[in-house]
């Protein structure tokens, strides 16, 4: 049954991919180059964005220096194995020769300098909501990090998921800049959580095609590593106070003093560096989430 369903998805995806390659609606989008060129970011203000976005958790070589974004970490998924690319400041092997507009296209539209789609294993479906200022500051900060000449390794994906054109369909279905969770009194927290901290990428379950199920926002999901579970954090699953959540984001300690692990550890490396007001803002947003199963 599951195999049949998988086969159907593959056939459907393959057919769509073949059609999509030439379709206008699934073409890779780009930003307005002149508009972006005038932005000049501050490296000092980009450091917290880098940590909250946990770029290093995926792009630093496993076991290596966290500031050297040489790539190499592998992600095994139902679609095959992705390998994080080198995004260090090396002109030959990283982003050293990119323009700021190239970087904006990657973060906001998941589009490469060659005009192809990135796979959403790179969580640009969240980063797309980042402000111009924060993307420009992040870009300025990343330019200060060391270069590595380790060549980017190819992904090992199964057909038809290895066709970047299929991602055009995925984007048409799932890539939205609109925020999902509550923002009436929790706008700052929502921005930090949904645009940069990309909490939903792990805490929200996905559809068969790998899109987030917005009607089950933060309701918990299988761990992206393939082993274990990511807990739900809506009030249906989590009864911690706002102060408890903020303390967890600062120290990693739960209210009963277990300590965080798994993918959450990298998130806490980022949130622990934020000002207390920003942690409180994220906690308020989490408390305001509608209960979901």
């Amino acid at each position: 049954m599951a195999a049949m369903k998988k086969l159907l998805i593959i056939v459907a995806f393959g057919t769509i991919a073949a059609l999509a390659a030439g379709l206008w609606i699934t073409r890779p989008l780009t930003v307005n180059t002149e508009q972006v060129a005038s932005l000049s970011g501050s490296a000092a203000d980009g450091e917290w964005v880098f940590h909250l976005g946990s770029c290093a958790s995926c792009h630093a070589t496993p076991g290596g220096d966290k500031t050297v974004l040489a790539g190499g970490r592998e992600f095994t998924t139902g679609f095959g194995t992705f390998v994080a690319p080198n995004i260090s400041s090396s002109p030959a092997h990283g982003l050293g020769a990119w323009s700021q507009a190239d970087f904006f296209n990657a973060m906001r539209h998941g589009t490469s300098p060659q005009g192809t789609h990135y796979f959403p294993a790179f969580p640009y479906a969240s980063y797309t909501r980042m402000s111009d200022t924060d993307i420009a500051n992040l870009w300025a900060y990343m330019a200060t990090l060391p270069a590595s000449d380790a060549p980017t390794q190819p992904h090992r994906l199964t057909f038809p998921f290895n066709l970047r054109a299929t991602v055009g369909v995925w984007k048409a279905l799932y890539l939205r800049t609109a925020f999902v969770g509550p923002g009436e009194d929790t706008e700052r927290g929502r921005y930090l959580a949904e645009a940069i901290g990309h909490c939903a990428e792990c805490h929200t379950p996905r559809s068969a095609l790998g899109g987030l199920q917005n009607n089950r926002w933060m309701a918990g999901a299988p761990d992206p590593s393939g082993k274990g579970k990511v807990p739900g954090i809506t009030p249906a699953q989590l009864d911690w106070s706002e102060a408890d959540i903020a303390y967890y984001l600062e120290t990693g300690f739960t209210p009963d003093f277990d300590s965080a692990g798994g993918g959450m550890a990298a998130v806490i490396e980022g949130t622990s560096r934020l000002p207390a007001t920003d942690r409180a803002a994220i906690a308020a947003y989490v408390k305001a989430l509608p209960p979901a199963q």
Partner: peptide, 12 residues
């Protein structure tokens, strides 16, 4: 504590 739970304890 977190460093060890990150690397050697499955999330659950």
């Amino acid at each position: 504590c977190t460093a060890c739970h990150r690397a050697y304890r499955v999330s659950d």
